[in-house]
Structures are given as structure tokens and as C-alpha cells.
Design a protein around this nucleic acid. Structure first.
Ligand code: FES
Ligand code: FES
Lengths: 144, 144
DNA sequence: ATAATAAAAGATAATTTTATCTTTTATTTA
DNA sequence: TAAATAAAAGATAAAATTATCTTTTATTAT
């Protein structure tokens, strides 16, 4: 579904959000441990998230990554997916044509569209805040 | 969503089904032209489909690929996806954990599950026959 | 039997994705 | 100002996916 990079991006963001809610900034090392991901690769992904203003990053001692509380409830899953994987997952053609077209639909178009639109809706209406709350409450997990 | 290999597999199968409905066997060259795919790569994929008994293949002159008419309406999209990409698309965890778990759910589990189950339902209830009919009737297209 | 046809099988190559390592830049603290 | 900390940037490497090319096997028609 998503690329590895995007999976790590989502996991990282949720973890950063959880920690930011506790007013804690987190380092790459912390994050990679918390979400069980390759540290250097995760660092690259966090750079992209930072450039896309999805997370904040501060260099130097007491630095690290964070998300402003006031932004959390407006930050949607779709923004992370867009920043890392682009929009093809919920806009592209299921059979790989250059673009999905209503006028020249591929054979799976009508069936696929429904699922894809539901995915789109889910991504656009799920906030990082709500995902981080489930984590905080011990209902969900970032590693096993 | 699907790998390139899987996209070509689906496109190929639909095309073969359409032609089999006209009692025509088709060669790799035909297929690659019809679905606009790299021929040699497509050949490899058709080998897998043949091994998985999704399509029939006959060597030699007048040979080629086909699907028995009586099998077409029982052949589901899910079987093709399973043969090429495996079942992770509709069984796996959205955040890449080894397996999706109800007991130790990842943060997106409850949201993701709904979309994934709908995808699963769609794949398991869409037949190659119906997809090939849309093509035959000129309502859908295998290339642009 | 021989030649022609077409897929299967095997080997190799290109590209993309995933991952790691090294150097640089920014910031803080002593 | 110097040392320590932590991310950014750049270079490189490993693995997976996508793609191509060559050889072999099966089948048909002459
Ligand atoms: S054209 Fe293929 S999904 Fe719309
Ligand atoms: S545990 Fe991640 S989707 Fe179920």
C-alpha cells in the first residue's frame, strides 16, 4: 500500500506527536528505537517531513523533532502520504495508466474508484492528534 | 497500490479473457501490444499466471495464451493479485508491521481495516468475465 | 525427419527503493 | 572561544523490482 519510507514517516510523526503532547522533543535515535526503524533511513525521511513543514526540527543540544500542539489536530494522514509517496495512491489509476480518467476508464476503474475514494477520505479525515491519543491511552502500539 | 508486475498481470488476463471469448488464443507479442507493456517482462508474469493455473498456455504454432470460458466467471481479481503480489495488500498492516493484529493494533488499524476490507471484498467479488465484457462493449480501455 | 513457431527457463542488466556511512552546519553549554 | 550535541547534506551501498536478452523445450506443419 504505502512505501516503507511512508510507513516510517507515519509511525515517526505519530510518535513525535505523542511526545510533543508531553512537551518532549525527540532525537532521531529516540524515534528509531520507538518505532523500530533503521535510524539513518528514518533521518532522511524526517528531513523530508521537516522540509514539508509537517514536523519541526531543531539542531544542537536539546534539539530534536517536535510538532506544535496547535497544529496537531489539523495535521492529516494525507499530508504525510502526499509528502513521501505523492498522491498516486488515491488519485492514480489502479492498473497503472498515466492518469485515471473518467472518459477513458480502465477495466477496473468503476470498482477501484470506490475503494480509492474511501482511502482518500480516510486519509484526509484522520488527524495525527487522534492517532497519537490512541497511543497515549495504550490502545495502540508503534512496535511489537 | 499494486506492483507493476501485478498491473500487467491484471491487464493481460483481462485481454486474454476478452480474446478467449472470441475463441482466439493470443501470443505474448499480441498481449504486450494490446496492453502496452514490455514484452519480455510480461512473458515472465504470464509464466507465473500459467503456473498458478490462472491462464492456459500452449507452446508451438497456433499456441498462445487463453482462459477457458467456463472458468472466466469464477476467476476473481483477488486470485491474480494473490499470485503476483501476495495477500499483504488486503491482509497486511498498513504501517508495515509483520502482521496486522486485532490484539496489538497499530495506530491506523481501525481506520485502515475498513478500507482494506472493502478492497478485499472488491477483489474477491470482481470477476475477470465482467471486466472483459466492459472492454468488449467499448466501455473500458486497456491502453491510451 | 526438418523447419518453423511460440512459450519456458535461465542469465544478465537497469532502475528504484531501502539502507548506511561520512562530512558539514547549527546550536548550546562550559 | 572550545567542546559537545544533534540535525542536514552528501556520498555510497545493498536489496528489490523492473526489464531485457539468450538458450531450451514443446508443438505443429511441411
Ligand atoms: S482509469 Fe484506471 S482507475 Fe480510473
Ligand atoms: S495492526 Fe496495522 S493495520 Fe492492523
Amino acid at each position: 500500500m504505502f512505501s516503507k519510507a511512508c510507513e516510517y514517516a507515519i509511525r515517526s510523526t505519530i510518535y513525535i506527536a505523542e511526545q510533543s503532547n508531553l512537551d518532549k522533543r525527540v532525537s532521531i535515535t529516540d524515534i528509531a528505537k520507538a518505532i523500530d526503524s533503521p535510524e539513518a533511513f528514518t533521518a532522511k525521511i524526517l528531513q523530508q517531513l521537516s522540509k514539508n513543514q509537517i514536523i519541526d526540527s531543531i539542531k544542537g543540544p536539546n534539539g530534536g523533532f517536535s510538532i506544535e500542539k496547535k497544529n496537531m489536530r489539523n495535521l492529516k494522514l494525507s499530508q504525510i502520504v502526499l509528502a513521501i509517496d505523492g498522491d498516486s495512491i488515491y488519485k492514480g489509476c489502479g492498473l497503472g495508466f498515466k492518469e485515471c480518467s473518467e472518459k477513458q476508464p480502465c477495466p477496473v476503474h468503476n470498482k477501484f474508484k470506490i475503494v480509492r475514494d474511501e482511502l482518500k477520505y480516510m486519509l484526509e479525515n484522520t488527524t495525527i492528534l487522534e492517532l497519537s491519543l490512541g497511543l497515549k491511552e495504550g490502545l495502540t502500539f508503534l512496535h511489537r
